[in-house]
């Protein structure tokens, strides 16, 4: 297995040892013998105030890295759950610049311990201005951006801006990616590479794609230091399964779903979100029995 030597930096170290805030966080967890839990919520759902509450509640219940979704009118990588939430958030008037508030809130709430990545379809960043967005996100305490519809081939401006402002850039790989593209994407990414477990859009699935484990291995062999898996994970058991071989487990729709039902009181929805998060957090903690504190990848 290629990749890092496993000499992880302490999480509270001032300068990122990996050159990446998210990378440092994942390495620290690796030293504890487990994968990171990365939790996604769209900002502004059901409204900005309550959505800040939800993000912080998710953090308190045990996510290690936050993924802040920017609602977009045309989310082609998202399934029905996230589409519905995004549509409602936009109808509620959420603005692109609101994401900065969320990054600030997470940074303040956790003293910078939990990195906040923005997940954004590319046109929203383009319209804001690639460099201004990177500058403002970094100033707000954000860690970087996940770009589901931007491939490194099209990302020259973003690569320059993220370098200039010290942000992570998370590109995706998929089971259909060729070895050549895995290399290209691994080299262009900072923080981690996002491996789509299956060919498809976001949403809970009975089984996480069986090609996910192979894709993680292939992506590491192509030079990636950290590979996290998303698409389809919804339960603690699935998180435990994926956490066995991946450096991080990314969960979105299963968390969003706990907030969707308008007829349930908000406090009960937050409880459901925290319970779901705790179950997933437990999953990543029991994924590699006996690996704790060894400080190296098994």
């Amino acid at each position: 297995m290629s990749g890092t030597t496993g000499t992880a930096a302490p999480a509270d170290m001032a300068a990122p040892a990996t050159g990446s805030r998210t990378g440092d966080r994942i390495e620290a967890l690796r030293a504890e013998g487990r994968a990171a839990l990365i939790g996604y919520l769209p900002i502004g759902f059901p409204d900005v105030e309550r959505s800040v509450e939800a993000v912080l509640a998710m953090v308190d219940a045990g996510v290690d890295v936050v993924e802040l979704g920017m609602p977009y009118t045309d989310p082609v990588m998202d399934g029905p759950v996230i589409q519905r939430a995004a549509e409602a958030a936009l109808a509620g008037g959420v603005r692109a610049r609101d994401v900065l508030r969320f990054a600030e809130a997470v940074a303040e709430h956790t003293g910078g311990r939990v990195p906040a990545l923005v997940m954004s379809y590319w046109n929203l960043v383009l319209r804001y201005g690639v460099d201004p967005f990177a500058r403002d996100l970094a100033a707000a305490g954000g860690a970087g951006v996940i770009t589901p519809d931007l491939i490194p081939d099209e990302g020259a401006d973003w690569i320059a801006a993220s370098d200039a402002h010290g942000l992570d850039r998370v590109f995706l790989v998929a089971p259909s990616s060729t070895t050549e593209r895995l290399r290209l994407t691994a080299a262009a990414s900072r923080g981690f590479v996002y491996a789509a477990s299956t060919m498809g859009v976001t949403g809970a699935r009975e089984q996480v794609g069986e090609r996910a484990e192979q894709l993680v291995a292939d992506t590491r062999a192509a030079g990636a230091e950290r590979v996290c898996v998303g698409l389809g994970v919804s339960t603690g058991d699935q998180a435990a399964e994926v956490g066995r071989y991946a450096d991080g487990v990314i969960v979105g729709s299963a968390l969003v779903r706990t907030l969707l039902d308008d007829d349930t009181p908000w406090a009960a929805r937050l409880d459901a979100l925290q319970a779901r998060t705790a179950d997933l957090a437990d999953g990543v903690r029991r994924a590699r029995p006996g690996a704790a504190s060894r400080g190296t990848r098994s």
Partner: peptide, 12 residues
């Protein structure tokens, strides 16, 4: 122009 799509489609 360009290719602003998910990586999953690039091979196709």
């Amino acid at each position: 122009g360009g290719r602003f799509v998910p990586e999953a489609l690039i091979a196709a």
